[in-house]
Nucleic acid binder design. Sequence first.
DNA 1: CAGCAATCGATGCTGTGTCAACTACTTTGT
DNA 2: ACAAAGTAGTTGACACAGCATCGATTGCTG
Lengths: 150, 150
Amino acid sequence: MAAKKKQAVAGPWWDAWRGVVFANARVLQAVEPSLEKSFGISLPFLDVLSRLYDEPNHRLRMQELAEQSLFTRSGMTRLVDRVEKAGFVRRESVPGDRRGVYVLLTSEGERILERAMSQHQSDIQRVFASRLSPDQHRAVADALAQFWRK
Amino acid sequence: MAAKKKQAVAGPWWDAWRGVVFANARVLQAVEPSLEKSFGISLPFLDVLSRLYDEPNHRLRMQELAEQSLFTRSGMTRLVDRVEKAGFVRRESVPGDRRGVYVLLTSEGERILERAMSQHQSDIQRVFASRLSPDQHRAVADALAQFWRK
DNA sequence: CAGCAATCGATGCTGTGTCAACTACTTTGT
DNA sequence: ACAAAGTAGTTGACACAGCATCGATTGCTG
């Protein structure tokens, strides 16, 4: 008989949750330094750039950027400050609304995004995806899609 | 025909990864304030307390605590500083090794852990687990267990 | 057993993100 | 058309975690 270790919580859904937390943390820990080393950019940088890239005109308002990401508006202000200083985006005023600000990808931003995202993908592939079967990819994606597809 | 949106990345394993990231972030965002409000403690606090609780003698060395969690040793020093100031743990020297420090749960720490963990569980149940089927719990747990079980 | 490398935990410094408050502008209601 | 309420983005103050380093202690090797 296996020894039973006392634990504050146990159960199948708790293990699922634990899995999410640890997978997230461990994969990020492995993947962020790689990006930093090759391109000098952090994951939040990449996140901003890729969201802009996915937009028709490569631009988004601060507000939209903040909503889509995991940042508050003020956090996004500072993040965009840094990305802008690095030369990957620039701010522009919104024609109809003088409160608003567009953030838009520069060509340098576009270039670095394409290269960085490509490496980032293979990093995730290596550290995360390659450890799961195709069935598991589908199962996890299906189970968790609800947390980002509004 | 559905319109195809340009995207930097696509694929089933990428969706799985995205799911992990967003599930993690959105659930934590929902759950942390609840804990803070009811007990005045943060998730890192709860994490430390529950790891001590799960140990035979309700104690662990700094080093072990840091390894098991997602903190560095220095981060753990400061975290334990705060938890200690709150009265939930105390430090004690290790008999055989004068470099070492035990962190051990106080009775107050034990009391608050039991109550806080109970609420935390129902929060996770409500925000995360209740949105997945039992099959999905098992699938996600199986797929992701490797990231925390050694 | 002498000396040198490795380990443990703490600390100064720094980067980064949040909250609350602020300014500027826009919308709504009468 | 004007006051009040709401929205967009920024800013100051702060909390927190990491890195590099330190002092103390222990283990390893010749």
